[in-house]
């Protein structure tokens, strides 16, 4: 079978620059170093407070945890939501108030803001408690599209995307499965 390279074919630098449209400048400066970078995503937010954006990146990963996907993809999805909030005050308030409420819940139950609640299952419990509310629904709904719709993410899931320009799969493995048991 023709398998696909799950890590981006492009070098790391081109990979980062390739997505420059959606990519926060600060991330480029930080060289995409994931750990310290989580702090900087926040500063690229245009509508949200930096701290709220950083918390939302954590929320995004807790909603759609894929351990092989680096933070930058979650950050891009959150920054798209942030961009929509620039001209939409209702959305901005929904997000800011949602983060505030989440932090308050986290302090009540775990004595620290959401971002610093160490256990994933504890954070998930906090999300579950608000999952019927407008804030969670909005963030979840937006992520469903904006997170999974990032083309650079697709190879990591083994998805090849647009195929017409390569002549389809007629000569590229539409029927190349080789492991099925003989009947």
């Amino acid at each position: 079978m023709r398998l696909i390279d799950r890590l981006p074919r492009l070098g790391r630098r081109r990979f980062l620059r390739g997505g420059a449209g959606a990519l926060p400048a600060a991330a480029l400066l930080a060289g995409g170093v994931a750990v310290s970078a989580t702090r900087v995503w926040g500063e690229d937010a245009k509508a949200l407070k930096p701290g709220s954006a950083v918390t939302l990146v954590r929320v995004a990963r807790d909603i759609y945890p894929h351990d092989r996907i680096p933070d930058i993809f979650y950050a891009r999805a959150v920054l798209m939501l942030d961009a929509a909030a620039v001209s939409d005050n209702t959305l901005r308030d929904l997000l800011e108030e949602g983060v505030m409420r989440l932090d308050a819940d986290a302090r009540d139950r775990f004595q620290s803001p959401y971002l610093e609640v160490a256990g994933e299952s504890d954070r998930v419990a906090l999300l579950e408690a608000i999952s019927a509310g407008a804030f969670f629904k909005k963030v979840h709904g937006a992520l469903t599209v904006s997170f999974y719709n990032q083309h650079e993410l697709w190879p990591r899931f083994g998805y090849e995307g647009s195929s017409a320009e390569y002549g389809g799969y007629l000569h590229r493995g539409f029927d190349d499965i080789d492991w099925l048991p003989k009947s």
Partner: peptide, 20 residues
């Protein structure tokens, strides 16, 4: 979007991880 509308968390994402 369609595997489990409204789904999230590891039971959901482990399914998406199986995509290929």
């Amino acid at each position: 979007a369609f595997l489990k509308p409204g789904g999230w968390g590891r039971s959901f994402t482990s399914g998406v991880d199986d995509f290929s």
